[in-house]
Amino acid sequence: MFETTVTMDQFIQSMIDTFYMVGFSLVIGSIIGIPLGILLVVTRPGGIIESKLFYKIMNPIVNIFRSLPFIILLVAIIPFTRLIVHTSIGTPAAIVPLIIYIAPFIARVVENSILEVDDGIIEAAESMGATPFQTIWYFLIPEALGSLILSLTTATIGLLGATAMAGAVGGGGIGDLAISYGYQRFDSFIMLVTVVVLIVFVQVMQSFGNWLAAKVRRE
C-alpha cells in the first residue's frame, strides 16, 4: 500500500513546479487581466470612459479565449509558445498557455466584481469631480475589493486545475506526477498523496481567500 517508485526529491520538485506555474501565471495573468477587466467595465456603453471601439474589440477576444478548454489551448498555441520561450516543452512552455488561459478568465471575473459596485457610488464620485482614474482607484476598487479577492481565489484554483494538464507538454507539477506515475504506472499511493495534496491546497487557498475577503469587507 505505501510502496511507491516516486522519490521524495521528485515529489518536492513537482510541488515546486506547481507553485512556480500557478504563481508565475497568476501574477502575469493578473497584471494583464485586472486592468483588462476594469477597462471592460469603464469602456462599456454608459461607462465612465465609454469607448465602443475598445469594448467591441476586447469583449469578443476575451470570449474567444474563454471558450477554449485549456488542454486544447495548450497545444493549439504551441507555435506561439515556441516564439516566446523558444521551447515547446517543460515548465516554461506550460506557463505561456497558462497565462493566456488565465488572463481572460481574470478579466471576466474582475469585470463581474467591479460591475457589482452600486451605480450610486460612481455617481457620487462624479458629483465630487473625480477623474476616471480617481473613480477607479478611490471608489471602484476599494468597494469591489472583497469580491475581487474571491474572484482571484477562484482564478488561482482554476489555474491549479489547469496545471494538471501541463503534463501534456512535459510541464511537470503534481498533477503531472499523478497522471504519469499514479495513473499510467498504477502507483496508487502517489495518486492518493496527490489527491490529498490538491484537496489541502484548494482548501487552504479558498479559506485564505474567504478570510481575506471577509477582512476587507469587514464582516
Binding site: G120, I121, E123, A124, S127, F139, P142, E143, R217, R218
Partner: peptide, 12 residues
C-alpha cells in the same frame, strides 16, 4: 455638493 437618497457612502 450632492447628497443622495441611499447615501452612497463607501462601505469599505
Amino acid at each position: 455638493g450632492m447628497i443622495f437618497q441611499h447615501f452612497n457612502l463607501l462601505n469599505s
